[in-house]
């Protein structure tokens, strides 16, 4: 009886230790790969930053007309953006190497899948980037125009436009990556439809007189009466 218990305990311990012995090298390899890639990413990023700063890249880009990139970049610095992009690419590659070392059964399928989806991923990233640029541009344009039209809720209006464009870009990117499937499409349609409906109701019910007066002026081609008789020029 005692021998059987002892055998069972030895067997279990043996299996656990074998499991740990099989698991540990992979885990250590993952940790090592992540640490090394982080270090390498940081080094490469720093080196790139040093070179770009020496070339006065930010100012040159501004002269070449890359204002949009500068505006989108963290702290308005395209150098910082490129530095971070390089560093994070190396870190992501390090994770992939680490995962390959960690679980031979999972990652051989993961790597080709990741490689296959890279073009889609690239397109989705471009869609998101363009969406962010457009959102920032429209947000500022709406904000300035609304303030100049003396609309008190100018900030709210500009934020609404910004998030509408961002959500639209995100929905397009997710749809392109085939993430979420119909849920994303339906979610976006409900959100967008809801906004349009609420705006239509607000205008239709709340400001019908203003709209009808404005429409009347448009159709009769009458100039809008100005309450400011001053000539500015």
């Amino acid at each position: 009886m005692w021998d059987q218990i002892k055998d069972a305990l030895y067997g279990a311990t043996h299996r656990v230790l074998v499991g740990v012995a099989n698991f540990l090298p992979g885990l250590l390899a993952l940790v090592l790969a992540v640490l090394l890639s982080s270090l390498l990413g940081w080094l490469l990023g720093a080196l790139l930053g040093f070179i770009l700063r020496a070339l006065d890249f930010d100012k040159r880009l501004q002269k070449w007309g890359g204002v949009a990139l500068a505006e989108w970049s963290p702290k308005n610095s395209p150098t910082l953006l490129l530095r971070k992009a390089v560093a994070w690419t190396v870190v992501v590659l390090g994770w992939l190497v680490g995962l390959t070392a960690f679980g031979a059964g999972v990652t051989p399928q993961l790597i080709p899948h990741v490689v296959e989806s890279l073009p889609n991923l690239g397109t989705a990233i471009i869609v998101v980037l363009l969406g962010v640029l457009l959102a920032r541009f429209l947000c500022r344009a709406v904000l300035i125009s609304a303030v100049n039209m003396q609309i008190q809720s100018a900030r709210l209006l500009s934020l609404a436009v910004k998030w509408l464009v961002l959500v639209f870009a995100a929905a397009m990117a997710l749809d392109h990556l085939r993430v979420g499937g119909d849920i994303v499409r339906l979610g976006f349609a409900i959100l967008f439809g809801g906004i349009v409906l609420s705006l239509a109701l607000a205008i239709g019910l709340g400001s019908k007189e203003i709209v009808s007066r404005s429409w009347e002026r448009q159709t009769q081609s009458k100039p809008e009466p100005s309450d400011d008789a001053l000539k500015h020029l």
Binding site: Q62, V67, A141, I144, N148
Partner: peptide
């Protein structure tokens, strides 16, 4: 001159 943002936005932001 420095093109700190879209020039149309910049000039319109002077209105207030």
């Amino acid at each position: 001159r420095l093109h700190v943002m879209n020039r149309g936005h910049l000039l319109r932001a002077l209105t207030p």
